[in-house]
Amino acid sequence: MTRRYFIKILVSLFGLIFIANFSLIKRILFKKYTIAFKPDAYPGGLKSIDPKAVLLSTKWKG
């Protein structure tokens, strides 16, 4: 085996170990969510629903 091939194999091996470890690290470090939790409060300001404001938002009455 030439020195060049030996280096190639070594680099590939390191690459594989890195990828394997990365997904392992990801699994340990990250908590995965698809569905998020509901909030305790809204971060922006709140306004009450004014029915007139809603209906006036369109002149279209159907």
Binding site: K31, P43, L46, L55
Partner: peptide, 24 residues
């Protein structure tokens, strides 16, 4: 609108629409 609050993914606009209209 999806925020990491204390290690929990939270949908902060849940239940809080900012626009509400009657359209065709």
């Amino acid at each position: 609108i999806r925020i990491n609050l204390d290690g929990k993914l939270t949908a902060v606009t849940y239940g809080y629409p900012c626009s509400l209209h009657v359209d065709p």
